[in-house]
């Protein structure tokens, strides 16, 4: 497989050598069935990659330099090599793949299936589905602990979060959260888990050691996804129906600022080193850039139609 990649890389280098440097954002566009690759330094789309039908979720992997995309309407995942920005394979999975996350070691990708109430496991080396485990109803967001030992899954229609042992695939805990949980983000040190409850309009903050909800913080309307900023001890939350991002201070456990962004903000990710948050606006077909020092929007990058990018969408690794 590595030989295969190298060959493709040489071919690609001949025609379209990257003149850009990381980081890059991979934005799923549900209306145009493709992925916009954004050079975040240049603030522009440098390539558009065809995906499956209505791509929703994204999991960019630093470890194996890939982007894994869930396509709920074509019932498959597209695996993209982010060095060459080409699809390596489309892999059929379940009936409605939505949430997607890669283990930190780059060995597996986990895909929640909205209709099958199951999480599917992809072997990233073989590019085959090698397992699955049953979860709650309409599983949506999922994330892994930084050491890769645990998987956290929000079950949207059960109002809970499930925690699984990644290697034994055993259920460790089921935690009741707010109404219609969707996005899940584990803090960078693994100590806290943040869950966005769409219908109750709040964030459940869970202690990663005790598996208990330690705080619930009100946000705007329809909070959807979360980015954690450990340098400022904050989280940023997209509020779909408020066209805003709530900035929550984790010491005070309250919203310290609400930043207007585009319409229907959904996916959100952070570049802590460069102090930027990127917000994907589904209705406006663009990405808003927030500076984490000033907490203001400093620019917008046009993308494809119906941009969603639910998951971690930034590739930080440079070319080899």
């Amino acid at each position: 497989m590595h030989f295969h990649n190298t060959v493709i890389l040489f071919l690609a280098l001949g025609t379209s050598l990257h003149v850009s440097a990381a980081p890059f954002a991979y934005i799923t566009n549900q209306g145009s069935d493709d992925i916009s690759v954004i050079d975040l330094a240049k603030k522009q789309v440098i390539k558009t990659i065809k995906a499956g039908h209505k791509p929703a979720g994204i999991a960019v992997s630093q470890a194996d330099k890939r982007a894994y995309v869930s396509n709920p309407e074509s019932k498959d995942i597209s695996v993209i090599d982010t060095d060459i920005n080409l699809v390596l394979k489309n892999i059929p999975v379940g009936n409605g793949p939505v949430g997607i996350a890669v283990s930190p070691d780059g060995l597996n990708t986990y895909v929640s299936d909205w209709y099958d109430h199951t999480v599917y496991i992809l072997d990233n080396e073989r590019l085959e589905i090698t397992g699955q485990f049953s979860v709650g109803h309409s599983p949506s967001g999922l994330d892994l602990s930084p050491n890769g030992s645990k998987i956290y899954i929000a079950n949207r229609d059960d109002n809970n979060l499930m925690i699984f042992d990644r290697h034994k695939l055993s259920l460790l805990a089921t935690i009741h959260v707010g109404k219609a949980p969707f996005g899940v983000t584990v803090s960078r040190d693994g100590q806290l888990i943040f869950v966005a409850n769409v219908q109750s309009g709040d964030i459940s903050i869970i202690d990663g050691k005790t598996n208990k909800v330690i705080n619930t913080v009100k946000t705007g309307l329809f909070p959807y996804a979360i980015a954690h900023d450990d340098s400022n001890n904050r989280i940023y939350v997209t509020n779909q129906r408020d066209n805003s991002v709530s900035v929550i201070d984790l010491d005070k456990c309250k919203v310290i600022k609400t930043i207007p962004v585009g319409e229907y903000p959904e996916g959100i990710d952070i570049d802590i080193a460069r102090r930027q948050v990127y917000v994907v606006n589904w209705f406006d077909d663009n990405v808003s850039i927030i500076n984490t020092d000033t907490l203001t929007v400093t620019g917008e990058i046009p993308t494809g139609s119906g941009s969603r990018a639910f998951g971690r969408f930034i590739q930080f690794s440079d070319l080899p």
Binding site: Q30, A56, P72, D157, W282, F283
Partner: peptide, 10 residues
């Protein structure tokens, strides 16, 4: 009242 289609439409 629960699950809906996977992709929102404009």
């Amino acid at each position: 009242t629960y699950a809906h289609g996977p992709a929102r439409v404009k």
